[in-house]
Amino acid sequence: MTRVSFFGMVRDIIGEKETQIAGGDSVKSLLQALSERYGVSFGEKVLKTPERDMDLILLLNGRHIEHVGGLSAPVKNEDHLTVFPLVGGG
């Protein structure tokens, strides 16, 4: 089981702060598993398309997935994925 935490609008859309989910050996398959669990609300409102991750900030163990292999980055059971909407500030 991989721990997944949600923040900002993503949290509002799916109505949960955190979950444990099985079935992902990569970030991409983990996102697919999340789409199956949360259905339309996650797949359409959060991901928009399976390949599109630019509207999200995805951190795997505190590292942006871009720097650990992107959507194909390997995921292990003890890993922690955090899902943020694209936000900004200063």
């Binding site: 900002g8 955090t82 200063g90």
Partner: peptide
């Protein structure tokens, strides 16, 4: 992002 949460969303 900014209209909905302001800058505070950066904390997490």
């Amino acid at each position: 992002g900014l209209p909905t949460y302001g800058t505070a969303v950066l904390v997490n």
